[in-house]
């Protein structure tokens, strides 16, 4: 009995971590390998009977030639949305961390709560807000901020606005987590040393919040660049992103090898960009 307990004790870490590790191994690592082999398979096959792997690297050449504008567009839209999220999210996270006082918890709950109204339902409601005869467009036209025949819905602006809105909480939470750890006394000390508010922010608060900035921008940029819901619901055929193409190649196109190749390219580009970004921000130890 004691021997059994000792043996269990030594291996208990593996017993605890085992089931989760197995799940991640079988359903994350193996699928990634499967995606790679599919991307190198002969497109002459079918989803039901499978594809034969023939080291067909032409799949990659094909999708880059056909779909590079979608890749560029995805990263441009996701990049703009990430910057907008950073500006909006930093303001709110800063207000919650330093200015909210006893309303801190309430405000934090309010940041997460909209999540629970379905993502799709909320995105659809932007259709109503941005509609051609909606109050927003009418107001902008009355104020002459927009030409008479201008519109918001079905434009790149609507897609970027949708992405910004949808991924904002992913920016706010990591920002808040690192802003909250900053000791307000540091700010006071800087003020005592005659630093003006801008200097105090730039030299004290901003550097200390960098881990949150990096975490938040990654959690916003990565899902935003793979998203196609905003582009489908709020955009037009010329605002489609790479997610739209991968999705339609898999479903209506039933061309799994090309879809898989495009998926792999998206993943590789994201990994490369993340590594360059993290290195430049000097926060390698985050990963």
């Amino acid at each position: 009995m004691a021997a059994l307990q000792r043996a269990l004790g030594r291996n208990s870490a593996y017993l605890l971590v085992g089931p989760a590790a197995l799940w991640l191994g079988i359903f994350f690592v193996i699928p990634m390998i499967s995606l790679l082999t599919t991307s190198l398979s002969d497109p002459a096959g079918s989803p039901i009977y499978g594809y034969s792997m023939t080291w067909r690297f032409e799949n990659y050449v094909d999708v880059v030639a056909d779909y590079w504008p979608y890749l560029v567009r995805s990263f441009v839209y996701a990049g703009i949305a990430t910057v907008l999220c950073l500006i909006l999210g930093y303001t709110l996270a800063y207000a919650i961390a330093f200015k909210a006082g006893r309303f801190k918890t309430l405000m934090l709950v309010l940041v997460v709560a909209p999540f629970f109204t379905s993502f799709l339902v909320r995105t659809l409601s932007w259709k109503l807000i941005l509609a051609d005869n909606g109050w927003l467009v009418e107001t902008l036209k009355t104020l002459h901020l927009m030409p008479e025949d201008g519109r918001l819905l079905a434009t790149p602006i609507a897609v970027v606005a949708g992405l910004t809105y949808n991924f904002l909480p992913f920016m706010i939470l990591p920002l808040y987590a690192s802003l909250e750890k900053i000791d307000p006394k540091l700010n006071e000390a800087a003020a005592d040393l005659y630093a003006n508010p801008f200097k105090r922010f730039w030299n004290v608060v901003w550097p200390l919040s960098l881990p949150g900035v990096v975490g938040g921008t990654l959690l916003t940029f990565i899902p935003a660049s793979g998203d196609y819901i905003n582009a489908s619901l709020l955009g037009n055929p010329n605002t489609q992103m790479v997610g739209n193409r991968i999705q339609s190649l898999f479903t209506t196109g039933s061309d799994y090898p090309h879809a898989a190749a495009l998926s792999v390219i998206l993943m590789v580009l994201i990994v490369v960009m993340v590594m360059v970004y993290v290195r430049r921000a000097g926060t390698e130890d985050l990963l």
């Binding site: 989760a20 590790a21 991640l24 191994g25 359903f27 994350f28 690592v29 193996i30 699928p31 990634m32 499967s34 995606l35 082999t37 599919t38 989803p47 499978g50 594809y51 990654l218 959690l219 990565i222 899902p223 660049s225 793979g226 998203d227 196609y228 790479v242 997610g243 991968i246 999705q247 898999f250 799994y256 879809a259 898989a260 998926s263 792999v264 998206l266 993943m267 994201i270 993340v274 990963l287």
Partner: peptide, 25 residues
């Protein structure tokens, strides 16, 4: 292994699972 799925766009994770399911018949 825990971090990677969170850094993978949903469309990539979804398509890799589909590739596995199809490869597994």
């Amino acid at each position: 292994l825990v971090f990677l799925p969170m850094a993978t766009p949903e469309i990539v994770m979804g398509s890799s699972l589909l590739a596995l399911f199809v490869a597994a018949g």
